[in-house]
Design a binder for these strands. Structure first.
Lengths: 354, 354
DNA sequence: CTGAAAGCGCTTACAG
DNA sequence: CTGAAAGCGCTTACAG
C-alpha cells in the first residue's frame, strides 16, 4: 500500500542517491537527453519507475527557460459572421492559462472567403519554427500542403471546427455534424403535427463550406428514415446570403408549399427569423445553429425556437490544451474529441457557456 | 504603451532595488505581514503598483510550505440514488488540480435521510482548523448552526446544489430550479396537442427536499400561465419512492385521467419510465431530471424523452475552485453561479459532460 | 559520459 | 523594524 493520492515525496535528489549518480545525470535521463551510459540510464529508469516519480512541474518550469511556440491558423471573424470570435476567445484563454508554462501562441488569421490568404498564412508559419499548429482546415488542397510540410518537419497539428480525417492530425476537436442534424430532426419530430411539412434551408455561398451543411442534412434525413416519420421534407438552397435574397427565395417557396417547421443548417438562421418576423409568420417554428448575438435576438422574440450549438469557444480552448498536453506534458491525446451538442432555448440561453 | 500580455518582467529583486530595501522586506509587504515601517510599506506598495507587479505563483508555491485545508460536507451517494457521485467526482478532480498549490481537501459525507449525521459531521469539522468549507445545505436548522460557527471563526463557506440565500455564503453554485421548470414546460408545450393533459409527478419522501421540487413546479406552471397555454395540469405526489408504490399511484391516476405527457420533478424519472415500459404506454411522453445511468437507460429506449441536467460534477468542481480563488489567489468570487440548464436527448447524451 | 555549481523567483527562519 | 542566508525541486551551462 502506497501513500496514494499524496504528492510524490521523492525528487531527483533521492533518485540520484539511489542510483549513485549526481542529479545532473538523473536530469539527463528524465529529459532523455544524450550522453548517458546505457547501463546508467537503465538503472535510473528502473528507479524512476519503482518510485513512481512524478516531476514537480512548478520547479521544472521555474528552472527552465524552455519555450513552446504554437501557431494558430483560423478564419478571422468578419462582419458577415462573428462565429470565429468564439474559438479565438477560447484560444486566448487557454494561451493565458499555459503561458506560465512557457507556451507562446501566435495567431494567423485568414479570410474564409479567400483561399489565397490561407496559403499566405501557411507560408508565414513555415518560415518560423513552431512546435505545434492549431488549424481550421477550411480548404482541402491548401490544408494538404500544410500537412505535408508539417510531416517533413515532424510538427504535430490539431484540427478544430471541421475535420479531414485522412490527414494525420494529432487530434480533431469539433462538432459531430451528422449527429447534430439527427438531433435537430428529433426536435422537429416533436413539433410536427399530422401531415405537416418541414423545410430544410441551406444558406451559403461557399462551396467549400457546403459539405459541412450536407452532413447535417444527412443526419436530419436519417432520423426521419430510421423512425418512419412520414412527414414530407422540402429543401431549398440559397446561394446569396443577404436578407433580400433569402426573403425572395423563401417567399417563393412558402407560396407554393404549406410549411410548419424550418430547419436552417447553419448560423444564418437569424435571417430566416427576420423574415418570419417581417412577413408575420410567428406560427412557423424555426430551428438553426449557433449562439450568435443576432440569433439570440430572435430566440428571445420567439421567432427562433431552438438553436443547436457545439461550444465553439471550448473548441479553441481544447485545441491549445491538446497541443500543450502533448508537447509539454508528454501526455497522450484523444484522436477525436466531439463537442457536446447543446440545445438552446429562450429559457436557458442566459446560462449558456460557449 | 506597456508590453501588454507579456509575463511581468519584474520580481521582488527589482522592487527591492527600487525601494532600497532587501527582498525580505518586500516579501513582508507583499504578503502583508506585520513588522514593516509604515513609510517603508507605502513606498514599496507604490512601486508594486507602478510596476504592475504580478507574483510568480510557481516560485511562490515552490518556496512556501503553506497549506490550505478545505472541508467538504455533502451527502454520500446511496443505493437509492447515485446523484452525489457526480459532485464528489468534480470535487476530487478540482482537488487534484490545486493540490500542487497546497490545497488539501477533506471529505465529510452524511446521510441525506438523517439529519443527525449532518450535525455529527459539522462537529467533526469544527474540531479541526479549516480555511474554507464547501457544503450542500440540505437541512436548514443544522446548516444555520454551521454558518454561525463559521461566522465567529471567520471561515468562508460555499453552498452547492441548493441555496439558502439569507446566509452569508461566499458563493452559491448550483441549478436555477425555477428556470429549469420553466424550460421543462416549454418543451412540454411543443409536444402537447390540443386538449391534451400533462401530469406533474413529485416523487420524494423527504420533506426537506420538497421545496426543491416545488420550485421547479412553480416555474413549470408559470410558463403555462405566462404563455396562455390552456392545457390542463394534473399533479400527483408520491411519498414512497419504491417502484410498487409509484406504479400503484400512477395506475390510479392514469385510470381516471387521459394524460399524454408526464413531467417528473426530479431524478426519479426512471421509475416512471419503467412503469411506462411495463404497462405498455410508449406513447406517453416523459420528461425528468438528471444524467443518471438508470435514466439514460430509459432515454435510450425512448421511454424518457428529455432529461434536464445541471452539471452536478461541475458544481463540485467550481465549489472547490471558488474557495481556491478566494483563499489562495485572493480573487473575488461571484455570489451566485447558476449552472447551464442542459437538455439531454437520445441523440446527444453520448457527448454530454456532467 | 559525469559531476558540481549557479540560478529560476519566491518564502522561511534566524540574527540583529 | 530590517537584512542576509538557506532552500523549495528542478535545469543549465561549464568543466573534466
Amino acid at each position: 500500500m502506497k501513500n496514494e493520492g499524496a504528492p510524490s515525496q521523492v525528487g531527483v535528489k533521492e533518485i540520484a542517491k539511489r542510483a549513485n549518480v549526481s542529479i545532473g545525470t538523473v536530469d539527463r535521463v528524465l529529459n532523455n537527453r544524450t550522453g548517458v551510459a546505457v547501463k546508467t540510464r537503465e538503472k535510473i529508469l528502473k528507479i524512476i519507475k519503482d518510485l513512481d516519480y512524478q516531476p514537480n512541474m512548478m520547479a521544472r518550469r521555474l528552472a527552465s527557460k524552455r519555450t513552446w511556440k504554437l501557431a494558430v491558423l483560423i478564419p478571422a471573424a468578419s462582419g458577415e459572421t462573428g462565429y470565429w470570435d468564439a474559438p479565438l476567445n477560447g484560444i486566448r484563454q487557454a494561451a493565458a492559462e499555459v503561458r506560465d508554462f512557457g507556451v507562446i501562441v501566435n495567431e494567423f488569421l485568414f479570410d474564409q472567403n479567400d483561399k489565397s490568404t490561407f496559403s499566405a498564412r501557411v507560408n508565414q508559419i513555415m518560415k518560423q519554427e513552431f512546435h505545434g499548429i492549431l488549424c481550421a482546415p477550411m480548404f482541402e488542397e491548401e490544408t494538404n500542403k500544410l500537412v505535408k510540410k508539417c510531416g517533413t518537419k515532424n510538427i504535430p497539428f490539431v484540427f478544430i471546427n471541421s475535420d479531414m480525417d485522412h490527414m494525420q492530425r494529432l487530434s480533431y476537436i469539433g462538432p459531430d455534424l451528422y449527429q447534430s442534424g439527427y438531433l435537430g430532426a428529433h426536435l422537429v419530430h416533436y413539433i410536427l403535427r399530422e401531415k405537416q411539412q418541414v423545410l430544410i434551408v441551406n444558406i451559403s455561398k461557399e462551396m467549400d463550406l457546403h459539405h459541412h451543411l450536407l452532413k447535417k442534412e444527412e443526419g436530419f434525413r436519417a432520423y426521419f428514415d430510421n423512425n418512419g416519420v412520414n412527414a414530407k421534407i422540402l429543401k431549398t438552397d440559397i446561394r446569396q446570403t443577404d436578407y433580400r435574397s433569402v426573403k425572395n427565395k423563401l417567399n417563393r417557396v412558402l407560396k407554393e408549399h404549406e410549411v410548419q417547421v424550418i430547419f436552417v443548417t447553419n448560423s444564418r438562421v437569424s435571417t430566416v427569423g427576420k423574415f418570419l418576423e417581417e412577413t408575420g409568420k410567428p406560427d412557423i417554428k424555426l430551428l438553426g445553429y449557433d449562439f450568435l448575438p443576432e440569433n439570440i435576438e430572435y430566440l428571445k422574440k420567439s421567432f427562433i425556437d431552438f438553436l443547436i450549438c457545439q461550444k465553439p469557444q471550448e473548441q479553441g480552448h481544447k485545441g491549445i490544451m491538446a497541443l500543450y498536453n502533448y508537447l509539454v506534458l508528454g501526455k497522450q491525446v484523444d484522436m477525436v474529441q466531439h463537442m457536446p451538442i447543446d440545445i438552446i432555448t429562450k429559457e436557458n440561453y442566459r446560462n449558456y457557456r460557449n
